[in-house]
Design a protein around this nucleic acid. Structure first.
Length: 248
DNA sequence: AGGTCTGTTCAGCT
DNA sequence: TAGCTGAACAGACC
């Protein structure tokens, strides 16, 4: 279940194959490669190389040589980038093969990942790890939506998933159900600092889904800070855990 | 073995 | 327009 930290690892993986000539593209999965027909992505990429790998939030894209189209990739909920691993017939939803025999695959059990050319990121907000203080105040601190729902909205802010949202709100001692627009500037600034720190920690630990990032995120578990049993509810359409004592 | 849960994005409502 | 709901997917889990 990739979030920003996992996406950054994936971007680094893509960097390993920059400059290699693409000789084959497996774009047969019309769901993952929508809206393209089979062969369209292949036609656009064969003969070119990937030149630069970018990321904003969870969205990945690579520039291609000779003014070629950009290649957009998204890991969905279960995807990862596999470099030079033996091909997996079922789970490799998209793949590039290079002239030197190496291979890049979008390996995704759930099939919610995406691969497409000329991706459009106009509607995606600034990266959660890079957003300025003023932009954060403006984009997050508005509206009547629950604060957690606002953090998960990739148009407001790109990169925060369910686990990172819970971890960040727990560290910041903010209740996920509070209306985002009712936070003070001080609370928003604090939230932004905590979010950046939590994101850095998650990247360092190799991702947010390693198990120990937010250990109390289970029914009936105790808050690591005060021992209170955590509450559980659906907020913004997502399962949410919080400490009713620390996050009033 | 079957039902429930999982998370992100997007379409389609109000 | 803002915000909410459910569909899409398919494996993990109980």
């Amino acid at each position: 279940m990739p979030e920003l930290p996992e996406a950054e690892r994936a971007r680094a993986q893509i960097e390993k194959v920059l400059g290699r000539e693409i000789v084959f593209v497996d774009d047969r999965d019309t769901y993952v490669c929508r809206p393209h027909a089979p062969g369209e992505i292949a036609e656009a990429l064969i003969g070119r190389t990937l030149t630069v790998a970018h990321r904003r939030g969870k969205f990945l894209w690579a520039e291609t040589s000779d003014d070629g189209p950009e290649l957009g990739l998204h890991l969905g909920m279960a995807g990862r980038i596999a470099i030079d691993e033996p091909a997996h017939e079922k789970w490799d939803r998209f793949a590039l093969e290079f002239a030197d025999g190496s291979r890049l695959a979008l390996r995704d059990k759930r099939r919610l990942g995406r691969a497409l050319i000329e991706p459009d990121f106009d509607h995606i907000g600034p990266d959660a790890a890079l957003i300025s203080r003023d932009a954060f105040r403006e984009r997050v601190g508005r509206g009547s939506m629950p604060l957690k729902a606002r953090l998960l909205d990739q148009r407001s802010l790109a990169g925060v998933g369910n686990l990172l949202a819970d971890e960040t709100l727990w560290r910041a001692k903010l209740n996920p159900k509070r209306a985002a627009g009712e936070l003070s500037e001080e609370e928003l600034d604090h939230l932004r600092r905590v979010l950046r720190a939590a994101t850095r920690d998650a990247i360092r630990k190799g991702g947010v889904h390693t198990g120990d990032f937010i250990p109390h995120r289970k029914r009936g578990h105790a808050c690591p800070r005060c021992g209170t049993t955590v509450d559980r509810a659906t907020v913004g359409g997502r399962t949410t855990f919080w400490c009713p004592n620390c996050q009033p």
